[in-house]
Simulated scan of single mutants.
Amino acid sequence: MFKPADLPKTIPVFPLPGALLLPRARLPLHIFEPRYLAMLEDTMKTRSRLIGMVQPQPGPGGEGKGLYMIGCAGRLTAFSETEDGRYMITLTGISRFRILSEISGFEPYRRAEVSWEGFDRDLARPESDPGFDRPRFMSLLARFFEERHLATDWDSLKGAEDELLINSLSMLCPFAPEDKQALLEAPALTDRRETLATLIEFALRGGNNEEIMQ
Rank of each mutant, 00 (worst) to 15 (best):
K3C: 07
P4T: 07
A5H: 03
L7H: 00
P15W: 07
L16G: 07
A19P: 03
L21W: 04
L21G: 10
R26W: 01
L29I: 07
F32M: 12
P34F: 06
Y36L: 01
A38D: 13
D42I: 05
M44Q: 03
R47H: 12
S48C: 06
R49A: 00
P60F: 08
E63D: 09
G66D: 14
M69N: 07
A73T: 05
R75Y: 02
R75D: 07
L76T: 11
F79W: 14
T82F: 15
E83M: 09
E83A: 14
Y87K: 08
M88Q: 12
T90E: 15
T92L: 06
G93N: 12
F97G: 04
R98H: 04
S101C: 04
I103M: 04
S104T: 12
P108W: 03
Y109G: 02
Y109C: 00
R110Y: 02
R111E: 10
S115P: 04
A124L: 10
R134H: 09
R136D: 13
L140S: 08
L140W: 03
F144D: 00
E147T: 08
E147A: 14
S156F: 10
L157R: 11
E161M: 12
E161Q: 13
D162T: 08
I166R: 01
N167R: 10
N167C: 13
S168M: 12
A176V: 07
E178F: 14
E178G: 00
D179V: 12
L184H: 08
A188Q: 15
T190P: 13
T190V: 14
T190S: 15
R193L: 10
F202K: 15
A203E: 09
A203R: 12
R205N: 06
N209H: 14
N209M: 08
M213P: 07
M213H: 15
